[in-house]
Each structure stands twice: as structure tokens, then as C-alpha cells.
Design a protein around this nucleic acid. Structure first.
Lengths: 338, 338
DNA sequence: CCGGGAGATGATACCGCTAACCTTTATTCG
DNA sequence: CGAATAAAGGTTAGCGGTATCATCTCCCGG
């Protein structure tokens, strides 16, 4: 504003000159105002305003070896389930003056490793990883960097460091039990690709565990692996009903599969649960508005984000140490579709 | 790997020592391998591997005053429409070795300003802003920083720098015309809060323009402002039908409002478009799967992200200069609901 | 046989900030 | 009243890279 030489951002020494103090005093006035006399503080603040000074955090972090950036790797940004978690993380970080860098791994370990490497290059203060399996090199890099990490895809048994999640195994088991309790005996199970991540595998184990507990056989004709998406839900519905397994209920363990299937039932005029019962895995708003509303699980997506950021900051700011597993529970929402 | 002193990340000089060259040569071998002899390059690469070196980009950026970080401010991360755009941005940036920082403004100029200030503090190489109105201080800071900016909420007439978007005005006008062409005469219009952003205002202007063009009056009883969300769509449906305006079609100009309304019609057993026609604004997958499938607009959400990142990188890497407006068109998807 | 340009590498001085230590000037109290 | 202590501010030396220029070798043509 004051005849700033355009093209060159104001530096601390410019502020210092205007305020007639040393650069160090400017630094203190901004970071630790208590340590500077009120008059000087006022002069500095005024000078900051006049020259339009925005502190260079690159220099600051380099000098103090302290960063205020957190790196987040999610399989995909374009997925409302992850988006809730991201929003939760973002909310907490902003309140604490931290920044968020995001990368998507596209469901692959190699891409995750590249993202982690890039983040470590930026000297992030901590990492949040959605996936719970990682390339050996990624693990080695994180170990070397010695920064805190939170994983939050599932309550994995072998966490890198901290985990904030819910048990996908227990959730799937609980829903399967719920269906069994309601009297369904031939329960179909539709899952996203099992090879992609531990979450899906946990869910299938949970489904199988509930069947076993009930003394029912695991029938491969009742289990289907499909890609994500509405259309895949429709396809799964068809294939399961035609597959000889004769399901009386179908548990769609992920994504929007259940929505696709439920709408397809509407379209065909099939009564639900008369023709077949439908249960979903995620508490997408919409499920409650369908006809009939669909039974599902309430998962703490947003809370996972919030707590992940919190435990990470606790570690970064020295309020906590060591591994930690936070189990944020789930809950069954029973509706008319079962 | 090699007896690395834990807790201390390897620096370039450590690599240099192992490779028996100067730090400068390491720098060159990594950034501009052509300028280093093959033997030395190999030694450096080997040394990098042995010490587990990850270049410190804070130091690099500080020294070269070149950053590879882009800042993005969206109103909300937790909204699938923005999420598509973010994914598009992220995809392009990753291919070019750039990083993405995200902040959400929560639909407020003050929060946007804070996010921009934080990003400028990180010395981002460029900014992408979803909103198209900004606080004067935000504008001043961006000007001072002299970095390229892309706005992408709507094809605003007074861009800060570059715009990549579609015309919300023209899109709403096109849909209203479409309804008029189909013979609807009492067209209701449901919008998100007009005060929140230019996009909503553009859409309402477009609606009004189409009516005027057709010689129809603007009837305030047919226009409703509601918060986002499925439930608000239901509420809007009720209020418009009871409001005395007697609509024969309703154009829901945003969010998931139309979905809420369409499902409510199902629930009540109302024929659509018999009782009332329904049109939506965004190409949410689901709209095509409802009964009946809902007429809507195909908006280039993902493409906006991709192109935004591309034009920004063009400027950052010196392949382009000056303002630029990219109009990514929209398209009407006519379905059975109208 | 020597001047000179190209190619490879090194030395040095920063980038903008903060940690750590130092000086100066009150302030306190035995 | 003087030594001890605190409060406020300054000085200096990096943080880990890169820009810039200098140096050294090698090879060429005249």
C-alpha cells in the first residue's frame, strides 16, 4: 500500500525498517506478542498493515523445523464418504492454524507411496492415511521421517502408529446378525473388490463370522464382488437373484450399491422386503428417503476426520505420545427395507 | 538403511558425502540429470537410495522462490459437486508434480480471506477459488502476491484473473426455456440462498430472463429460497404447491433438492410430471435412476477442475500470460420427469 | 603448440526466517 | 547501595537448498 515495489513480497526486514526495530523483534511481536512491549507491538502491527506483510512460512518452517501442514491420502476425493472425513479433518485443522494437503491414491499402493514421498518432501508435520496397507518403501520412509501417522480406513490390527476408525468386521457382523435375528436365512452379500483394501476384506470376514456363529453355511452363490456405482448395484441384484442362491435378503457392503438396487426394485414394482430385503452399509442421507427407507449402518465418517486431526495434533504439539487406537463405534439404523 | 541417525532426516550434503561429490552436484543430478556425467549421476542415485534421502522442498522453494503447491478454496469439501472438481484438479496437478492444499470457506468471505492469507503464507504458486466474490482485503493480498488465480463458480463478468466455468445464468435460462417449450407455463423456481453466492443469483436471473423472453410474468409465489439438503427439497415442494402459485413444473436450481422432491412424490404416489413436472440442475448420477428419471443439466464439474489446473499451470510455467475465460458448456438432459 | 570454447564440477552467497545467546536498562531486595 | 534478576531488544549463525560465477579438464582448429 505504501509504494510497495510490485512483484516483490514484503519481507520481515521491510516491516522491521518501517517499525524501526530489528527483524527479530518483528518475529517475536507476531509469534509471541507477550514478549514485546505494547508500544513496539503496536508499531509492528501498524507496519505489517502498511507494507501488506504476509509471513513466509517456508522460511519459518525451514528455520524452526516445525511445519503446520498435514498430509492426507485418500483413495478418492470424489466420494462423499471420504469427503465427510476430509471435512472433519479440515475443520479441526483450521481451528488450530494448520493446513491440509490432499492427494488421492486411486486405490493403489504405488500412488500412495508417491503421495507420501511428496508430502515428506514438503516436510509435513503428520500424515493421515485412509488405507491401512502400504508398500514397504512407504513404511520405511515414514519410519525414517519419524512423524506421527493416523490410519483410518478400518481398525487394523497392525497399525503403523495411530488408528482412528470403527471395526468394519464388527459392523458387517452386526448387520448380518441383525438380518439373521429378523429371520432371514439366505443372506446375500455384495462387496466392493476385495483385493482393493482391507476394509472390504474385514467386512466379508464379519459377514462370514455371523453366519458361522448362527451355524449357517457360507454359500459362494450368495456372495458377489462388484465395482462401485449405482449401476453395479442393479447388476448385483440381478445376478444374485438369478444365481441359484435364492437370497431372501441382500446386504450391500459399500458405496451406493444398495441405492441402485433399491431404486431398481421400485422400477420393477417389487415389494421390499417382500421380494427381497435390502440392507446397506453407509449412512448416506438418501437411504432414509427411499421407498421403503433402507436399513443401514451409521458410521462416524465426520467424527473419524475430527478425531484423526485431534490425535495427530496432540502428538505434534507434544500433548501425547505413543500408539493409540480410537474405536469410534457404529450403529444399526433399522428401517422398513428389512 | 545405512545406519541413519534416527530422528534426523538425511540432507543433501549427506548424499554428497556418500557419493563423493559436492552438494551442488547432487542438486543438479536430481533436478537436471543431463547436466551431470552418467557415472556421477549413478553414484548420486545410489547414495540417495542408501541414505533414504527425500529432498526438502521447503528449502528448495525458499531458495529458488518457486513453489509447487496450489491452493484451493471451496465453500465446502463435503459436497459431491465440489468433490468432482477437486478430483479433476488433483489429477492434473499430480501428473505435473504439483501439490494441492485445500481449505473450505464455509460460504463466507471472511473465512475465504483467512484461507487465502494462509495459502499466501505458504507461498503457493497459484490459487483456485470456487467463489467469485471476495473481500477487498483478499483481492488486495492476491494482487500484491502477483500469483495467478482461477475462479470457477460461474462465468463472472469481473474476474480477478482467469475464469474456468460455465454460465449459471445461461444454464438456468436454457432449462427454463426447455420447460416453456414443453408447454409448462407456471414454472416454480427453487434456489439455494441468494445471498450466499453469485452462482445462485446468476441462476435466478437466468430463470427470470427466460420468463421475460416468453412474455410471462415473474410471480413471487413461484420462487422459493431454501437451504441445501434433501429435506429442504421436500419442504419446497410442499410450500410451492400450497403457495397459491399453482405450479405445473418446478425447477430446482441446485444441490439435491430435486431428489428430495422426486422421492417425496414417489412416497405420496403422485405422478410426475402428471401432478407436477420436476427439473434439476446438477447431473448427479442418481437423478437418472429415479422413477421417473429426472430432467437435469449436465455440468462439466470434473472438466472445470482439470482445465482450471491446466490454465494455472500454463501460467505458472510461463506458457501463457494474461487473463483468460474458459466457457465449459452445459447440456440439457431431457428425461421423463418433464 | 597454444588460445579458446564446451562440459563437468565446485565454492560462495544468499532465500526469509528463528534459535540461541548477548547487551542494555530498569527493578528488586538484603 | 550494589549485586542479582528480569524484561526488552539486538546480533549472529544457521535451517537446506539453489543461482551464479569461478575453476578445471579436455579437445579442437589454426
Amino acid at each position: 500500500m505504501d509504494g510497495d515495489p510490485p512483484g516483490a513480497a514484503a519481507r520481515m526486514r521491510d516491516v522491521a525498517r518501517v517499525a524501526q526495530v530489528s527483524a527479530m523483534t518483528v518475529s517475536r511481536a507476531l509469534k509471541d506478542p507477550e514478549r514485546v512491549s505494547p508500544e513496539v507491538r503496536a508499531r509492528v502491527e501498524e507496519a505489517v498493515r502498511r507494507v501488506g506483510y504476509v509471513p513466509n512460512r517456508l522460511a519459518g518452517s525451514l528455520s524452526s523445523s516445525r511445519s503446520n501442514v498435514i498430509g492426507l491420502v485418500v483413495p478418492s476425493i470424489d466420494n462423499s464418504l471420504f469427503a465427510s472425513t476430509i471435512q472433519g479433518i479440515s475443520d479441526v485443522l483450521r481451528r488450530h492454524g494448520h493446513e491440509l494437503m490432499i492427494a488421492s491414491s486411486g486405490y493403489g499402493e504405488a500412488a500412495e507411496e508417491a503421495a507420501i514421498r511428496a508430502f515428506l518432501g514438503q516436510r509435513v508435520a503428520g500424515l493421515i492415511l485412509h488405507d491401512t496397507t502400504h508398500s514397504p518403501e512407504a513404511v520405511a520412509m515414514i519410519r525414517r521421517a519419524g512423524i506421527p501417522v493416523v490410519e483410518n480406513g478400518t481398525l487394523t490390527r497392525q497399525p503403523l502408529d495411530m488408528v482412528v476408525s470403527y471395526s468394519n468386521h464388527d459392523a458387517a457382523m452386526a448387520m448380518t446378525r441383525h438380518l439373521l435375528r429378523l429371520g432371514y436365512r439366505r443372506i446375500g452379500f455384495v462387496t466392493l473388490p476385495l483385493a482393493a483394501n482391507e476394509r472390504s476384506r474385514d467386512r466379508r470376514r464379519g459377514y462370514a463370522a455371523a453366519l458361522e456363529e448362527a451355524g449357517l453355511p457360507y454359500d459362494a452363490r450368495l456372495v458377489l464382488e462388484v465395482p462401485p456405482g449405482l449401476a453395479a448395484g442393479v447388476e448385483a441384484l440381478d445376478r444374485l437373484l438369478a444365481g441359484g442362491g435364492d437370497p431372501d435378503a441382500i446386504f450391500f457392503a459399500g458405496d451406493v450399491l444398495a441405492i441402485g438396487a433399491a431404486l431398481e426394485c421400485n422400477r420393477r414394482g417389487w415389494p421390499v422386503p417382500g421380494r427381497v430385503a435390502i440392507a446397506a452399509f453407509d449412512n448416506i442421507d438418501l437411504l432414509g428417503h427411499l421407498v421403503p427407507p433402507v436399513t443401514t449402518l451409521r458410521l462416524p465418517r465426520h467424527e473419524i476426520g475430527r478425531r484423526s486431526a485431534e490425535v495427530l495434533l496432540d502428538r505434534i504439539e507434544g500433548r501425547a505420545t505413543g500408539p493409540l487406537a480410537v474405536d469410534l463405534r457404529f450403529e444399526i439404523i433399522h428401517r422398513a427395507s428389512t
